[in-house]
Write a protein that binds this DNA or RNA. Structure first.
Lengths: 108, 108
DNA sequence: TTCATGTTCAACAAATATGTTAAATATCAT
DNA sequence: ATGATATTTAACATATTTGTTGAACATGAA
């Protein structure tokens, strides 16, 4: 029944969880392996591993093997789409508000 | 087990659905009642009504009664938080990339 | 080889999301 | 009052998320 997920769906969905945003915040500071990402969280390793997959599905990070670690690297590219969506709609809204204000001012 | 939802969770979650983004896009053009919002969607009225509630919970729109209609109005305020989060992390990431580039250039 | 480490995967449980239909509620028009 | 219109709510089904634990796998070290 559900429409297939778009890229933007995946990105917004990935960002809609505080643990995942924390992981991304950590990765924005520099690369880290899954173990390091898990460390600050009171949650099983496996759970973090899955959060990492959700972030990867959204394109917000990439993994690469390095010895027995998996190194994770932030990728901000999908955030551009988010920015664009938000900016576009914010602008539309503000224009409508301005138009309304002008209209009200012009009324006697 | 689940941590309580934050404002940002609600906003991102609300945005993570194409139907809801379409509703918001429509509202950014100007206010509309629930029936008008439902019209373009091949989905039951009740389903749209619930999407509207999700958007309202996120603070992205407000409802007010007008006769037998419920008028919905866009509110872009929560998008500022989204913008701020995205901008902050994009900036961090770019700084790290720049720093890495500089480091690589300085290597023999 | 053997053992510890880092990570994923499978199986499961509980919570949440998403949609449906039908009944309930409120308002406007006759 | 009666009936049509606009919206919500309840009851239900299904799918998805999110977490847990324990087994599986790959790699590096002894």
């Amino acid at each position: 029944m559900r429409q297939s997920r778009t890229d933007l769906d995946d990105v917004f969905l990935a960002l809609a969880d505080p643990t995942r945003r924390a992981i991304l915040a950590r990765l924005a500071e520099g690369e880290a392996c899954v173990g390091e990402l898990a460390e600050p969280h009171d949650m099983s390793f496996a759970a973090i591993s899955r959060h990492v997959h959700v972030l990867e599905r959204a394109g917000l990070m990439h993994r690469s093997k390095k010895g027995r670690n998996i190194v994770c690297r932030f990728d901000g590219a999908p955030l551009d789409e988010v920015s664009a969506w938000v900016a576009h709609h914010t602008r539309l809204w503000e224009q409508k508000l301005d138009a309304l204000g002008t209209f009200l001012e012009e009324q006697p």
